Computed example of a mutant assay.
Amino acid sequence: MNELQNFDFEGNEVRTVLINGEPYFVGKDVATAIGYQNTRKAIKDHVKTKYMREERIVTPSGTQTMTVISEPGIYQLAGQSKLPTADPFQDWIYEEVLPSIRKHGAYLTDEKIEEALLNPDTIISLATQLKNEREGRLIAEQQVKEFQPKVSYYDKVLSNDALMTISLIAKDYGMSGAGMNKLLHELGVQYRQGGTWLLYAKYQRTGWTHSETKMVPRKDGTEKAVLNTKWTQKGRLGLYELLKTNGYLPLIEMKDESAV
């Protein structure tokens, strides 16, 4: 069983616990402190599974099973939020809570200090733990740097639920619609049939596009059926992931990188 240590952020209780020497935070407390209304959904949507776990924890009212998240999980949960408390909360965790937990340079209780004085192997173990903590911090900080640009583009996309032409998506990347169509063909996303670009079978059931048949007047007064294809916001995000994997970033992220 693990016992909780309590902190206070602007009147919100944030409970922490050490699990195998690593600090974890009660997920509900973190989400509430950031300002999420639906805490369970926020954790599920924004925190990767590897950064959360269910843990049996001793509380004043008895032993309870709680969802707890690690330090990188906090950065993910706060990084996805536009709420005004998100940034101050991250600063508070980084500048006050973690240093308080690590005030001895490692996770040392009074009992652990006494053990270290009596057993040299304990000192070696703590030194190794501290090294791992520092490496973990560097990894977590890098993840935040990589994650933030993605959040800004995701926010831009998710704030708009309209269908889009390929030309509008192409503008995100500083490209023309024709250039983007050609690139997507080279990447195996679509092929041209007549005057229409169609998705290859691999992408046909992804929900990336929405097609409509429109009747277009001919010069002779008759009409012809023309397939009009537009991209959904899901498709826009799908292209974002695909293009990023192949080295193409939207202009908004290129600006962020140049400013680093």
Results as ranks from 00 to 15, higher is better:
Ser100Phe: 06
Arg137Asp: 07
Ala201Leu: 10
Gln142Pro: 00
Ser70Asn: 12
Arg102Gln: 02
Ser81Ile: 06
Glu55Lys: 14
Val260Gln: 07
Gly105Leu: 13
Gln37Met: 07
Gly105Pro: 14
Ile169Trp: 00
Lys224His: 13
Leu242Val: 06
Thr213Val: 13
Gln190Phe: 03
Leu126Ser: 01
Leu108Cys: 00
Glu96Trp: 01
Thr206Ser: 08
Asp45Thr: 09
Gln90Cys: 15
Phe9Glu: 06
Val151Glu: 02
Ala86Gln: 13
Glu114Met: 07
Met175His: 13
Leu83Thr: 00
Lys255Val: 09
Glu71Gln: 10
Gly188Met: 06
Arg56His: 15
Leu98Met: 14
Leu243Cys: 01
Glu115His: 05
Ala106Phe: 14
Pro99Val: 10
Arg102Phe: 10
Lys28Gln: 02
Ser100Asp: 09
Leu199His: 02
Val47Ile: 12
Leu118Phe: 02
Asn2Gly: 04
Gln90Phe: 15
Pro88Gln: 10
Thr206Leu: 10
Glu223Trp: 13
Ser258Phe: 13
Leu4His: 06
Lys82His: 10
Val260Lys: 10
Ala259Tyr: 14
Lys112Ser: 06
Trp197Ala: 00
Lys103Tyr: 07
His210Thr: 00
Met175Trp: 14
Met1Lys: 15
Leu18Phe: 14
Thr16Phe: 11
Ala170Tyr: 12
Gln142Thr: 11
Lys230Thr: 07
Ala33Cys: 05
Ser176Cys: 05
Gly194Cys: 14
Thr49Cys: 11
Pro250Gly: 04
Glu111His: 06
Leu108His: 00
Gln142Lys: 14
Val68Ile: 15
Leu163Gly: 00
Tyr154Val: 10
Arg15Gln: 08
Ser81Pro: 11
Gln5Asp: 05
Arg137Ile: 12
Lys219Ser: 05
Arg218Lys: 09
Ala86Ile: 12
Tyr203Gln: 09
Asn20Ser: 14
Lys214Trp: 07
Ile93Phe: 09
Ser211Phe: 15
Glu133Arg: 08
Gln142Ala: 09
